[in-house]
Design a protein around this nucleic acid. Structure first.
Length: 467
RNA sequence: GCCCCCAUCGUCUAGUGGCCUAGGACACCACCCUUUCAAGGUGGCGGCACGGGUUCGAAUCCCGUUGGGGGUGCCA
């Protein structure tokens, strides 16, 4: 066994992959990479109600999307907690035999009842000294020793828990199956985990787990509890209320690099004034000691801003490739899509989107049989007194105009100046007639890319609607 | 209720006793550029929760208050 640190990420497969889990995984991965350690993936699937094979694959896929590749030499696993039930039970029995645990025949209802009567919540240690033998309907409880448990946490420092505030918790259910606290510790011991980096919600569990490590005769790992991610109401991100599925962001065209970079700046910041930094630098600089102590708001707007930055930084052909899946689901007839046309506008699109899913809408007019005219845009631009004239005069000018954006622009400029107007105004009706919207890629560059017949047809069609 | 954690612009953060008249980023606003919208550039708005200490000196250390969060299962 080497003295390299062994980190671990231990999600339970409850549906889709959570952005909070993603950040925890990334913290562990960055640390693994820098320290030359190992990243152990363990699927905590002991609760049968939340267990499904495709969810496990979902976790592996999500990690891989984030750049945590299961074939990387520093990656180990996945292990499945459910496969280790025998070890968990054996450890529980060792604890019992060593006097660290005892059987209790109280049902959850009875425990609750006693708590109600005494006015003190939780289990009161009723069976501690009753010397019960194992039997049906009996749970095994840990005998919490007296004293104080000090959790040494890399993020928070020493956290003290008075043991008398901790009840004798259940190790084995009445059906004999092991509980999370036990399973988690036994697995960490078996997998020789040395560093546990997880979300703050586990902090109250930690003294219990540390007692288990000690009762099992082991030295507890280094703990680190990172702050939770919260929503706008400052509540822990929840899959019921909040948009937390990594998959969903992926579908919207958030780039993995942007997601990774953004997630890493939640609770931590790289040195200097820039927060958009390459992963290699993050690996180099990330320290648990520097992680903030307070919850961080997962801000989709800022994520988008990061993403826009990453999109603009892409080489053009990479951007074009990245757009392909989004273009494939465009709302135009499939046979009208023209890759060459898209390639020509791509540079103009690249600076105008924050996510890839915005791309199809921005270029749809090239591929639709007719421009999809937005009514507000039409009403706003076609009501001007020059709308009809500019449409018809420009249409006429196009017949002889050289088909290149400069002359295309010059033609309209000449007309505009002759009327004492501004190009910003006069291009509007033309833009709406051709693209259907008031905003979009630069007009003359777009016209240049389109077929002359088609442009003229759309201008005439607008003209017909006007009169 | 009990236990634990936390507290710098609206948000994410820098800051580890003097470099702070508190820096950056997102958002917002204005201007510049400009064929729309973006992008880019320039500038602006805006913060150390409060009260006590400690100290020559506190955003930084201590105590309290208030406010937020997490946990409190025969879930993980």
């Amino acid at each position: 066994m080497s003295d390299r640190p062994r980190y671990r990420f231990a999600p339970s497969p409850t549906g889709f992959f959570h952005v909070g889990g993603a950040r925890t995984a990334l913290y562990n991965w960055a640390l693994t990479l820098r320290t030359g350690g190992t990243f152990v993936l363990r699927i905590e699937d002991t609760d049968e109600s939340r267990n499904s094979p495709e969810w496990t694959q979902g976790i592996i896929d999500a990690l891989s999307w984030l750049g945590i590749d299961s074939s990387h030499p520093q990656f180990e696993g996945p292990y499945f907690q459910s496969h280790y039930a025998e070890q968990h039970k054996a450890a529980a029995m060792r604890l019992y035999e060593a006097g660290h645990a005892y059987w209790c025949d109280l049902t959850p209802e009875q425990v609750q009842e006693r708590a109600k009567e005494s006015g003190k919540p939780g289990y009161d240690g009723y069976s501690r000294d009753r010397g019960l033998e194992p039997g049906p309907g009996r749970v095994l409880r840990f005998k919490v020793p007296s004293g104080v448990t000090v959790v040494k946490d890399l993020v928070r420092g020493d956290v003290e828990f008075s043991n008398d505030t901790i009840e004798d918790f259940v190790l084995l259910r009445s059906n004999g199956s092991p509980m999370f606290l036990l399973a988690n510790v036994v697995d960490d011991i078996e997998m020789t985990v040395t560093n546990v980096v997880r979300a703050e919600e586990h902090l109250p569990n930690t003294p219990k787990q540390q007692m288990l490590w000690e009762a099992l005769g082991r030295t507890p790992p280094m703990w680190a509890h990172v702050p939770v991610l919260v929503n706008e109401q400052r509540k822990k991100l929840s899959k019921r209320r909040d948009k937390v599925a990594l998959e969903q962001y992926k579908e919207e065209g958030i780039l993995p690099d942007a997601m990774v970079n953004y997630l890493m700046t939640l609770g931590w910041a790289p040195a200097g004034d820039e927060e958009i930094v390459p992963w290699a630098r993050i690996v180099d600089e990330f320290r648990l000691e520097d992680v903030n102590h307070s919850p961080a708001f997962f801000d989709v707007k800022k994520l988008s801003a990061f993403n826009g930055d990453y999109i603009r930084a892409m080489p053009l052909d990479t951007f074009i490739d990245a757009c392909a899946p989004y273009l494939a689901t465009g709302h135009w007839p499939a046979d009208r899509f023209d890759q060459q046309v898209f390639n020509s506008v791509a540079p103009l699109v690249q600076t105008r989107v924050a996510t890839l899913s915005e791309v199809p809408t921005m270029v749809d007019f090239f591929f639709l049989a007719d421009a999809d005219i937005n009514e507000d845009a039409w009403n706003k631009t076609m009501s001007s007194d020059f709308a009809k004239d500019v449409l018809s005069d420009y249409c006429a000018a196009l017949q002889t105009c050289e088909w290149s954006h400069d002359p295309l622009k010059a033609a309209l400029e000449t007309w505009t100046e002759s009327r004492g107007l501004k190009l910003g105004k006069t291009q509007a009706p033309i833009r709406v007639a051709i693209t259907g919207r008031t905003v979009g890629p630069p007009l003359f560059e777009s016209i240049e890319i389109m077929k002359k017949d088609e442009v003229i047809r759309r201008l005439n069609s607008a003209l017909a609607r006007l009169s």
